[in-house]
Design a protein around this nucleic acid. Structure first.
Lengths: 196, 196
DNA sequence: CGTCTATTTGAATGTACTCAAAAGCGGTGG
DNA sequence: CCACCGCTTTTGAGTACATTCAAATAGACG
């Protein structure tokens, strides 16, 4: 396993010496998933935070009437977990499935807590990650509330073009909070507009 | 000015000695606002993160067609800023107005950066704050996408009962992403249901 | 008391959903 | 290599949720 990518992610925010690097890496566990495998199932304990080394994952919530809402996608160099349940150690409300053959590096809650104590610089690293996630999520809320589906779809394509190419329309629709049927209609309308 | 409330907020997450407390407090500036005053206007630089000592604030975004979307409310013991613009020091996209006579403690970006260096424990403190904000915001996204307005309104009342009492329906509507007219209709429907 | 804003009401409209069915597409086994 | 299976995407009709606009009513505050 090549740890270069996770280390350069970390290095973008904090500097570690040899020892700290070794300790950090010693806490990581490799896990490989085949397309459609689950990294986490709703109801199970959520014990790890996961760095995506390769592939792609989708976190989603299933409501009472079985409608799926996609909470987030994660591709290479992203972290993913059910944050609410990871931090409070209650059963997951979210499922995470591989939408491609995927390899993740797992960091267990207990080990992360130790890491915070042994190498406090990681508080900073994760503070910045959480801050970015918060900002991203707030922006998403804003767009959900202020823009119609067509605009949200176009913005999504613009913001995550690489991700969009890997995803089915059904998956994108569930991220935008619309039905696949309606996304299909939106796309039709857009393509007509483009002919101009 | 009584600093007990901000200190006990901090103390819920990290322990500080006398010196650290003094240093932290020395970075804070008191600002009082009257109802309808602005703490931040869209377009201005967003230089501070603000702890609400008393009163209530509303952060909102005005889109191209002048529709207001409320991003968050903050009452006593909450922090508020335009996080995206605070961290990247670009002009604010958000305005923050007092919806009551309000008193905040302001911490400037530069001072926060110094604080992180001098007292790294604050990385932990804000890491936890950001983490909670992220989780809260993610949950909000989930509910926006999966629940109709009536359910979102009832959940809001349930989750923030004290806040709801301070807010007008117009303000609540703009947080839920619906028009005041429709919120009025929703309330009418609910009250009819209750007669049962 | 008057003014300003919030809230309610109603009609017409638009956005998005449900359900059902057809068409397209990718993989798998024969 | 083709035929079939399962899943995604498209299409369309009917419906539900939410908006717009306008006007009436109610509250808050100086």
């Amino acid at each position: 396993m090549d740890h270069q990518s996770i280390l350069s992610n970390v290095a973008r925010h904090i500097s570690l010496d040899e020892k700290e690097i070794d300790y950090f890496l010693s806490l990581l566990t490799v896990k490989t998933l085949k397309k459609k495998d689950y990294l986490l199932k709703a109801g199970q304990p959520c014990t790890t935070i996961n760095y995506v080394y390769s592939g792609a994952l989708r976190a989603f919530h299933q409501d009472d009437s079985d409608n799926e809402v996609t909470i987030m996608f994660a591709v290479a160099d992203w972290w993913i977990t059910d944050m609410a349940c990871f931090v409070s150690q209650i059963p997951a409300m979210t499922s995470i499935e591989a939408i491609d053959d995927t390899c993740v590096l797992q960091l267990a809650k207990d080990d992360l807590d130790k890491l915070y104590i042994k190498v406090p610089k990681f508080e900073r690293y994760f503070r910045i990650l959480m801050q970015n996630s918060y900002v991203r999520e707030q922006l998403r809320t804003l767009q959900n509330l202020s823009s119609p589906a067509e605009e949200r779809y176009l913005k999504f394509l613009e913001k995550y073009p690489a991700m969009a190419r890997q995803l089915t329309q059904k998956q994108i629709a569930s991220y935008l909070g619309i039905t696949p049927e309606f996304l299909s209609a939106v796309r039709k309308k857009i393509s007509k507009g483009i002919i101009s």
